[in-house]
Lab assay of single mutants.
Amino acid sequence: HYVEVNGKKIQATSAEEAEKIAKKFAKIYNATVLDLGNYYKVT
């Protein structure tokens, strides 16, 4: 599981952790979290 933010991949140990990381970055960048199955993308 990982999160992609601005083209950078951030490794996460679980889907739950990946979701938390994605939501945190989405809040910082006022962005949207896309759940793409095996990873989250912040756009």
Rank of each mutant, 00 (worst) to 15 (best):
N6V: 05
F25H: 04
I21K: 02
K9R: 14
K9T: 08
N30E: 06
Y2G: 04
E17W: 08
L36V: 06
L34G: 02
G37L: 06
L36A: 04
K8R: 14
Q11V: 13
T13I: 11
E16Y: 10
N30K: 09
L34F: 05
K24Q: 12
A12S: 04
I21Y: 03
T13L: 09
T13E: 13
H1M: 12
A26C: 05
N30T: 04
E16N: 07
A22D: 01
N6I: 05
E19Y: 15
Y29L: 13
K8T: 11
K23A: 10
N30I: 04
I28D: 09
V3A: 04
E4T: 04
A12G: 03
Q11Y: 15
S14D: 07
L34V: 14
E16V: 10
L36W: 03
N38P: 09
T13R: 14
A26H: 04
T32R: 07
K41M: 10
L36M: 15
N6D: 08
I10H: 06
E4P: 00
T13D: 12
G37C: 09
V3E: 00
A18M: 06
G37V: 06
V3R: 00
D35K: 14
S14K: 02
K23Q: 13
L34Q: 12
E17F: 07
K41P: 05
G7E: 03
Y39N: 07
G37E: 08
A18R: 01
A15R: 15
A12F: 10
A12E: 00
V3P: 00
H1D: 02
N30C: 11
Y39V: 07
T32F: 10
S14P: 00
E19P: 00
F25W: 12
I21M: 11
E19L: 15
N6Q: 08
N30Y: 06
V42G: 02
G37I: 07
Y29H: 10
S14E: 02
I28P: 01
H1K: 11
D35E: 10
N6Y: 12
A31D: 05
K24E: 13
Y40H: 07
E4M: 12
L34N: 08
Q11P: 13
K41W: 07
I10K: 01
A18E: 00
E17R: 06
A18K: 01
T43H: 09
K24V: 12
K24G: 08
I28L: 14
N30S: 08
V3T: 02
G7Q: 03
A18I: 02
H1Q: 04
Y29F: 13
A18D: 00
V33D: 02
N30V: 04
V42S: 02
A26V: 06
G37N: 04
E19I: 12
K24S: 11
K24R: 14
E17M: 10
Y29E: 06
I10C: 13
F25S: 02
E19V: 08
K9D: 01
V5W: 10
K23N: 12
N6R: 09
Y40C: 11
H1G: 02
T32I: 15
D35A: 10
A12N: 02
T13Q: 13
Y2E: 02
A31Y: 08
S14R: 02
K27C: 12
I10W: 08
I28G: 04
I28T: 06
G7T: 03
I28S: 06
G37T: 03
I28H: 12
K9W: 12
G7N: 05
E4H: 04
V42H: 03
K41C: 14
Y29I: 06
A22V: 05
K24N: 10
K27I: 11
K20D: 09
A15E: 05
E16T: 09
A31E: 06
I10Q: 01
T32C: 14
T43P: 03
E17P: 00
A31F: 08
K27W: 11
K8I: 14
A31L: 15
E16L: 11
S14Y: 01
A15G: 06
V33Y: 11
L34Y: 06
A15F: 08
Y2T: 04
E4G: 00
K41R: 09
K23E: 10
I21R: 00
E4R: 02
K24D: 11
T32M: 13
A26M: 06
L36R: 04
I28M: 15
Y2A: 03
V3Q: 00
H1I: 11
E16I: 11
T43F: 12
T13V: 12
K8W: 13
L34S: 07
K27G: 07
K20N: 10
A18P: 00
D35C: 12
S14G: 05
E4I: 13
K9P: 04
A12V: 09
Y29P: 04
V5Y: 08
K23S: 09
L36Y: 13
G37D: 10
V33K: 01
N30G: 14
V33N: 01
G7R: 03
I10T: 01
K24I: 14
E17D: 09
E4L: 14
S14Q: 02
H1L: 07
T13G: 14
K27H: 12
I10M: 06
Y40S: 04
Q11S: 12
A26T: 02
V5S: 00
V5P: 00
F25D: 01
K23Y: 13
A26W: 05
K27S: 11
V42M: 03
F25E: 02
L34M: 10
A26P: 01
K27N: 09
Y39P: 00
N38T: 12
Y29S: 05
Q11A: 12
N38D: 13
N38G: 15
I28R: 09
I21L: 12
I10F: 09
E19G: 08
S14L: 03
K23H: 12
A31Q: 05
N30R: 08
K9F: 13
K41L: 15
I21N: 00
G7A: 02
T13A: 14
K41D: 06
H1T: 08
D35P: 07
A22K: 01
K41F: 12
A26D: 03
K41S: 09
T43D: 10
K41G: 04
H1A: 08
A22N: 00
V5K: 01
K8L: 13
T32Q: 14
T32P: 06
N6G: 11
